[in-house]
Design a protein around this nucleic acid. Structure first.
Lengths: 142, 142
DNA sequence: TTAAGTGCAAACGCTTTGCAGTTCA
DNA sequence: TGAACTGCAAAGCGTTTGCACTTAA
C-alpha cells in the first residue's frame, strides 16, 4: 500500500471523493503492476474488504479511465478487458502465447506510426491500440 | 453475388459442406467489403432468406475464421466485433472518429514492427493487431 | 447537511450451446 | 445411411443500471 496523495488529488481536482472502494481498487491496480481483469481486481479488493461490490469496482475503473489514471485494453479478441495504471512511457502490449506474460513495449514505434499516417496519408492519428502476440524471448530460448 | 468456387473448395478441403446459410454469409461479407457486425450480417442475410438464424451466422463466421477466410476485429473497446474477408495485403485499421469510416492501411508498418521486435527484443511476433483512431483526410480537410 | 457514492439485484447485449429435427454427400 | 448442419430457445458471461441507503466533505 502506498500513499493516497496522488489519486486523492487527481479525484479532488475533478470534484470526486476518495472513498474506500476507490482507494482499494487503486491500490490493487498499483500493486499488481497492471493487466488485471475486473473480476481479478474485485477478488483482490475483496481480500481487504469483502463488502465492496463488483459494480463499485467497475465504476471506479471507469472513473480512473476518464481521468486518464488507468487504461483499459483488449489483449485478445476472446478475452475480457484488462486494466492497468497509465504510465506515459508505455507504448503497446506484447502478449506471449506460450507463457501468457504481458509486457509493455517502450520505444518510438507508436510515434512513428502516427507521423507516417499524418505525413503520407493525411490521417491525423489520435489513439493507437497495438497488441502483438507471439513468443517472448524467455520462451523462445534467447 | 460471385461464384461460390472459392469458399466451396476451402470448406471442402477441410471436410465441411457449403450450405445455404454459409453461402449467404459469405456473399454478404464479400459484397460489403468488410467491417460488419454479426447483427448487420444477420440482417442482410435475412434479406435473402429470413429463415436463417443468428446462431448459424455466428457458426459460419467462426468457421470462416478458423479456415483463415475471414477475420474478426475489435475496432473500439466498447463496440462489438466486426467481420471481414481476409485480404493478404490488409495491414491494419484506420477508424475515423468523425465520419466513422474504416479503412485498411496497406504498407510495411506491420512488417517493420515484427522485425524490430524480433531483432532488437527477441520477441517472435505472430499476430499484430493495430487499430488507429483519428480524423481521416476527408474529414480533416486535406 | 447534502450531493456524491455505494451495495444490491436485476437487466442488458452480444455470443454460445443443447437438443431435436433436417439435409447433403 | 449417417455424419454434418440447422433453427430454436435458453443459458452464459462480462458489464451496466435503477434505486434506496450511506458516507465523505
Amino acid at each position: 500500500m502506498q500513499s493516497d496523495t496522488e489519486v486523492r488529488l487527481a479525484l479532488h481536482d475533478h470534484g470526486y471523493r476518495l472513498t474506500s472502494p476507490r482507494w482499494l481498487v487503486w491500490s490493487v491496480l498499483h500493486d499488481a503492476d497492471g493487466h488485471l481483469t475486473a473480476e481479478e481486481i474485485t477478488a483482490r479488493v475483496n481480500d481487504y474488504d469483502p463488502t465492496v461490490n463488483r459494480s463499485s469496482v467497475y465504476r471506479s475503473l471507469t472513473l480512473f479511465e476518464e481521468l486518464d489514471l488507468a487504461r483499459r485494453s483488449q489483449l485478445g479478441i476472446d478475452e475480457s478487458a484488462r486494466w492497468e495504471i497509465i504510465h506515459p512511457d508505455d507504448q503497446f502490449h506484447l502478449v506471449c502465447k506460450r507463457c501468457g506474460s504481458v509486457d509493455h513495449h517502450i520505444g518510438d514505434v507508436v510515434e512513428q506510426i502516427k507521423s507516417h499516417l499524418n505525413d503520407d496519408h493525411g490521417f491525423s492519428a489520435d489513439t493507437v491500440d497495438l497488441v502483438v502476440t507471439g513468443i517472448c524471448r524467455t520462451c523462445g530460448g534467447i
